[in-house]
Design a protein around this nucleic acid. Structure first.
Lengths: 205, 205
DNA sequence: ATATGTTTTGACCATATGGTTGACTTATAG
DNA sequence: CTATAAGTCAACCATATGGTCAAAACATAT
C-alpha cells in the first residue's frame, strides 16, 4: 500500500487531523493525548507509534499552522499589481485563507505569547525582509500624495487588524452582537465583500 | 491587622498578582501552581489556604480580567457626546486601558475559545443589550448620510479590530516589522495618536 | 503568661497523564 | 504456506501536579 511518495498511512492522517483540531482549539497544555486519540478514534499508543511524543506531534501541528497563514502575508503583498489591487486582493484572499482555518490565528498567537522565542529566527528572517518592499511602496505612495500620510507600519497593521481580528475575537463578537447559528458566518461573508472598499477608501486620498 | 473592610492580606495579594500574571500569559492549563507560588515567593500550600483550588483561583483572575476590559466597551460607547467625539474617546481610552493590561485580550479570547459557554450568560445579557444604542446611533447617522453606508456591526468590529488587535498580535507584529526593545511601545504610542483620526476619517462622509 | 485563633511550613497523598513494553493481529513477500 | 515486517492493542510504569494535613510559628487578646 505504500506509494513511492511515502504517503502517510490513513491512521497517521487521522491522528494528525485530530491533533490539529485539538491543539488548535486548546493549545499545547490544554490538549490531552487521550482526547486526541478518542477524537481520531484510534488507540492512544498509536500516537506514540507514529509521532514520538506529544511535543513532537505538537511541533508538527504548530509548524504546519504557521505555514498555512504566515507565508500568505508575504506572497500576497508581493504580487506585481497596483497598490490598490494588491490591497484588495490581500484582504479578500487572506479572509478566505483564514476562513478555511479559523482557529489558526488565535492558536499561533497564544503559543507565541507563551514562548516568543519558539520560532523567532524561523520566521524573523523569512517574513521580516519580504514585507519591507510593501512598506516602501506605501512610503512612496504617501510621498506622492496618493495615499493618506501615515507611517506605513501603521497602515499594514490596520489592514491586518481589520482582516484577522474578527476571527480571533469571534466569541466576543458573537456575544456583543447576539449572534447565533450561522449569523457569524454571514457576518464574515458580508465582511469579505465590504472590507476591501473600506480599507481602500480609508487609505487612498 | 484586618480592617473593617476585610482587606486581603499581603500574601493573599501577592498570590493573586502572581496568579494573574501567570494565568494571563499561559492560560489555565499552561499555568503551574508551583510556578505561581514561586512567582509570589510564598509556599505552595498558601495558594490553597487562601483560594480553595486552582480552578477557584483561576476563576477569580478570569472574572477580574473580564471586568477590566469588557464593561469599558459598554461605558465608553454610551457616553453622552457626539458620535465623532464618542468614537475618538473610545479609541484613545480603550487603547490606554489595554496598554495597562496588555495580556488580557489574548487571555480572555483563548479561554473563551476553549469553552465559549464559560460565561455566556454572564456577559451575553449585560453587554449585548447595552451596545445596541450605539449601533442604532450609527444606523441613524448612516440614514442621514453623515457616515459611510455600512452595516453598523461591521463598523463596530472595525473599531474594535483596529484598537485591540495590535496587542493580541504583538509577537507577530514585532516579528514582521523587526521591532526590538521599546520599539513596540513607541508603535503603540504613535498609534494612540493616529488612530482616532484614521477611524473617524474612514467612517465620516 | 496563657490561651485562642491565624498563618506558614514540610511532608505526604491521589490521580491524571505522557510514555513504554511486549504480546497479538494483520498484511506483504518469497 | 511460511517468514518477516508493519500495525494495533492492553496492561503497565514513572512522574508531574493539584491537593491535604498535622504540626510549628506567629500574632492577639485576656
Amino acid at each position: 500500500m505504500s506509494d513511492q511518495l511515502e504517503q502517510p498511512s490513513q491512521t497517521e492522517q487521522k491522528i494528525f487531523e485530530a491533533a490539529r483540531h485539538i491543539f488548535q482549539r486548546k493549545g499545547l497544555e490544554g490538549a490531552r493525548m487521550q482526547e486526541i486519540a478518542d477524537n481520531a478514534d484510534i488507540h492512544k499508543s498509536m500516537l506514540h507509534y507514529y509521532y514520538r511524543s506529544k511535543e513532537a506531534l505538537f511541533q508538527k501541528v504548530y509548524q504546519l499552522s504557521i505555514m498555512k497563514v504566515m507565508p500568505e502575508i508575504v506572497n500576497l503583498l508581493n504580487e506585481e499589481v497596483s497598490l490598490e489591487l494588491k490591497i484588495r486582493k490581500f484582504v479578500v484572499k487572506y479572509i478566505e485563507t483564514i476562513q478555511a482555518n479559523p482557529d489558526i490565528p488565535l492558536f499561533i498567537l497564544h503559543e507565541l505569547n507563551k514562548d516568543p522565542n519558539r520560532l523567532k529566527q524561523f520566521i524573523m528572517g523569512q517574513v521580516g525582509k519580504k514585507v519591507e518592499p510593501f512598506l516602501e511602496e506605501l512610503r512612496q505612495a504617501a510621498k506622492e500624495g496618493r495615499i493618506v500620510d501615515m507611517p506605513p507600519e501603521q497602515i499594514l497593521v490596520n489592514i491586518l487588524s481589520l482582516t484577522v481580528f474578527p476571527f480571533i475575537g469571534r466569541p466576543v463578537i458573537q456575544m456583543i452582537l447576539g449572534y447565533e447559528g450561522k449569523d457569524f458566518d454571514r457576518f464574515i461573508e458580508e465582511r469579505r465583500l465590504l472590507l476591501p472598499d473600506y480599507v481602500i477608501n480609508s487609505i487612498l486620498k
